[in-house]
């Protein structure tokens, strides 16, 4: 039987989690079908805006795990996704999304990505509000001048399951 180290490799890049805000409330207030249409609209937009450097790793309920080889492309794609989502609605229901972005080297397991850096991206998105993109300091460092003048520090944040606080930023 092969060891885990034999069947997994790492890839370095930008990991982004994007999901619908308040999905539980959304389904309770407006039903599963409308909520599902919003989920599909989010995915359509993401596919259209990912570009050559990005891919949808997997769908997670109302969310998407995205991976990009290049931080500038990741930042531009996620900003474009939010700009487009702000104008989208289904039967009057607005497409309210939030995104968390991190830079790291997750493990590759088939088409999937797993590991600490994926968890950090997921947890940072938990802290984002409607329409917000939050970034870890690791992403900001990797992005260099791609985020210049577009982000603001929100200070350190504690992420669930992560021992030390992480410096975070929001896209203004």
């Amino acid at each position: 039987m092969p060891k885990v180290s034999d069947v997994t490799s790492t890839c370095t890049g930008a990991i982004a989690f994007t999901d619908l805000v308040g999905f539980t409330e959304l389904t309770a207030l407006h039903g599963d079908l409308l909520a599902l249409e919003l989920v599909e609209r989010q995915e359509q937009l993401a596919r259209a805006l990912l570009g050559a450097n990005g891919r949808i790793v997997k769908q997670l309920g109302d969310g998407l795990l995205l991976f990009f080889d290049e931080p500038g492309a990741a930042f531009a794609a996620c900003c474009a996704l939010h700009a487009r989502a702000a104008d989208e609605s289904v039967d009057g229901l607005p497409l309210w999304i939030r995104t968390g972005m991190h830079w790291g080297s997750p493990r590759v397991r088939g088409a999937d990505l797993i590991g600490h850096d994926v968890n950090v991206a997921s947890r940072i998105s938990d802290l984002a509000g409607q329409g917000e993109i939050l970034l870890t300091a690791a992403f900001v460092a990797a992005a260099g001048n791609h985020t210049d003048g577009q982000i603001e520090s929100i200070g350190p944040v504690f992420l669930r399951g992560v021992a030390d606080p992480v410096e975070a930023y929001r896209v203004c």
Binding site: G155, P156, A168
Partner: peptide, 24 residues
């Protein structure tokens, strides 16, 4: 002041400048 807690209550009194508070 920038304050981060996971579950701790945060209270400030008196005049502060720019304040960022994040708590779960």
């Amino acid at each position: 002041v920038r304050i981060a807690t996971a579950s701790g209550k945060v209270t400030t009194t008196g005049p502060l400048g720019d304040v960022h508070i994040t708590t779960r």
